[in-house]
Design a protein around this nucleic acid. Sequence first.
DNA 1: ATGTGC
Length: 564
Amino acid sequence: MPIRITISNNAKQSQKAVLILPLASLDPAAPDSYRALVLKAAQNKLQIRKASRIFVGGTGQELCTEDEWKSALRDDVTLLISKGEEYVGLRKEVAQGGSDDGIPNLDCTVNILAHAASVDSLSVTQVETTARTLPGLIHAVGQPDLHPGTKFPIGAVFVSKGWIHPPLIGGDIGCGMAWYKTKLNRNQVDGDKGRKVAEKLRGLEGAWRSQQEREVWLADGKEEYSAGPEWDAALGTIGAGNHFAEIQVVEDAVAAETGLCPNDVVLLVHSGSRGYGGNVLKQYVSDTSPSLREDAVKAKDYMKEHDRACNWAKANRDLIALRFLSCLEPGEETWGLGRNTDEQNSTDFDKLVARTKAKLRERKVVDIWHNNVERIRWPPRPPPAIESSPEEIADRTESLSLDEGAAYAYVHRKGAAPTYDPQTNKPLTILPLPGSRGTPTIMLRPVFSQATQYGYKNALSLAHGAGRAMSRTKALTSINQKYAGDSASLLQPNASSQAHVKDGKNVRGGTWVICDEKDLVWEEAPEAYKDVYAVAEDLVREGVAEVIGWCRPRVSYKVRNGGR
DNA sequence: ATGTGC
């Protein structure tokens, strides 16, 4: 099929011509190549005699290889013809919303959903500055757990058109939370029993099994998402910072469809893609161009790597859960794979992994990414009912297809949970809103209504936790001082830092915390975080979520030293 | 957050 393109003089972009290219060879070296056709037209129509380089307008990508030609050639693309000089950036308005580099987005809407929850003014400035300065941004939301990041805020959602901004979601691509049911009952974890449970949590540090076995875990039918031996070595480990795995008791759960009942014991896993995601970010951002045009080859490659990192992170959470379940339910042969010691017959290993994953799926309540970028239909439409027919779901999925002309946008989440399942686009029925290490996790259900324009107001997202109230450095010094350096006292069930009375009831306390990293004891102390009830209250007040229950933490696992 | 940056 012929392709209609525009060619323009790179050095003087007011000179341009429209070309209809007949079918030709993508190989730039071939005599009948598209490259030859474009260069000839440049000579005839633009009087450029010694053209030697060709760039893609907007992205500035140079077309050298066959693959680059293949991905660039499409109707309405502009090719810039150069006599050897570097690409000269084209300044023009992006089709819908936003603007090109350097031109502020004065019309980008900003919603800060915090009232009861305290918000550092720096983080609000970061949301506003980001909204105005990054190209293509059309909508920005600060969740009530909003807090400052190094450059970009955390607890924020940025919606853009035409542009992808990897730094907005940061290095921990695919980080998120997954909730799993256990077969324990509360009598086994309440009170002093928690200490025994904590003692059982051993062998969870360090690499899980061999690289060969890890690669099997990182394969799923057709797809595989191994990140290579260097990064895969961390598979099945929690990591540092705010990551954790926590054993909790369901205290209250009003909605039957959540699948959780009071007194159930659940495992909440918060982890991400470890070193892998950070490496992906590093490969795709440079100081000169933190943002990618959606049609750039680099943007597409980033999205592929990003999706791999997201899948890697999800597999990581599952493996962490498996390792914990092998400690928590030692009688269950199902979880044998979670231990490093059991010898496995390698010929059956694939099947064993498949069986184990199926069992794990039965236990999984929900699993969400809160650091990722997604191309979705935008603005949001009313969601289908929870009990949709398959046809409705298909229709909804269809509506998200990336047809030309469809209204879509990129939703960048940095510490913000989605309100829907990205696979089915159905609203989620339950989401965890963890306080902090050793403080309650609130169960949320997203609310969609006309009042919020079906998710426009909150950018189809909710807070992902309590959010820091204090920087790591401040927590490190001030909380350390407050407890006179007695870190052990913060890790006991009676720790005063855990105490908190809500509606006349002590909803905290009674948590055993395993954290052998001293700095993390202070940095992740509950005092360093906002009040999770205030965060939930703000979401309810904004009409974007309802509280459907809560969980009491019993054993909170951060890190254990000595490898065992 | 991080097989951490100089």
